[in-house]
Computed example of a mutant assay.
Amino acid sequence: MTLGLGTGAFVKSVAGHDKGGYFFIIREEGEYIYLVDGKYRRLDCPKKKKKKHVEPLLWEKHSPGVKIRENKSVTDEEIKHFIRWFKREEQVVRR
């Protein structure tokens, strides 16, 4: 397992049609992970992707990833809101 990549991790896609997108890992199977963003890739239909095609983002503050890791109930709405919030925060930091 690559450092920072595990169930509940917040990641950015670095390859494929979804390059630049933000996701949470909800499951792992060997070299593959299953990703959700709450909007296009919902909890009931996650995106299967190779681990090497994402990079971990070190962000835990207010993250639904904590709930995912602890097997607590999380909704698509929570994931979507967090990603939207993160994108706004990222724009503020870049200015």
Rank of each mutant, 00 (worst) to 15 (best):
T75Y: 04
D37V: 02
A15C: 09
V92Q: 14
H17D: 11
R42A: 00
D18F: 07
Y32Q: 05
W85F: 11
Q91D: 14
T2F: 04
E60F: 10
D18E: 14
V66L: 15
F24S: 06
V66A: 11
G20K: 03
R69S: 14
K72T: 08
C45H: 14
I83R: 07
D76H: 01
V74C: 01
K48T: 11
I25W: 11
W59D: 07
D18R: 05
D44S: 10
E70Q: 15
P64W: 02
R88G: 11
F10V: 08
R41G: 00
V92M: 15
V66M: 13
L3S: 09
E31G: 00
K19C: 04
V92L: 15
D76M: 00
H62E: 12
P64I: 07
G6I: 04
W85K: 12
E70F: 11
L57P: 06
S63W: 07
W59P: 00
R94P: 00
R88Y: 12
L3W: 06
Q91A: 12
K80T: 01
R42H: 03
V11R: 02
D44C: 05
G4Y: 11
E28T: 12
E31V: 08
Q91H: 13
G6H: 15
R27P: 01
W85L: 14
V36H: 07
G21R: 07
R27D: 13
D44L: 07
Y40G: 02
E60A: 02
G6F: 13
T75A: 01
G65F: 08
K47D: 02
K50A: 04
I25E: 06
I79E: 03
G8R: 05
P46D: 02
R27K: 15
E55I: 15
A9W: 06
G8N: 03
F23V: 03
K87I: 14
F10W: 10
C45S: 14
R42D: 00
Y34I: 07
E77Q: 13
Y22N: 02
G16W: 08
R95F: 06
K67E: 09
V93G: 00
K51E: 07
E78N: 05
G8L: 04
K67A: 12
K19H: 03
C45P: 00
S63H: 03
I33K: 08
E78P: 05
G65T: 09
V54R: 07
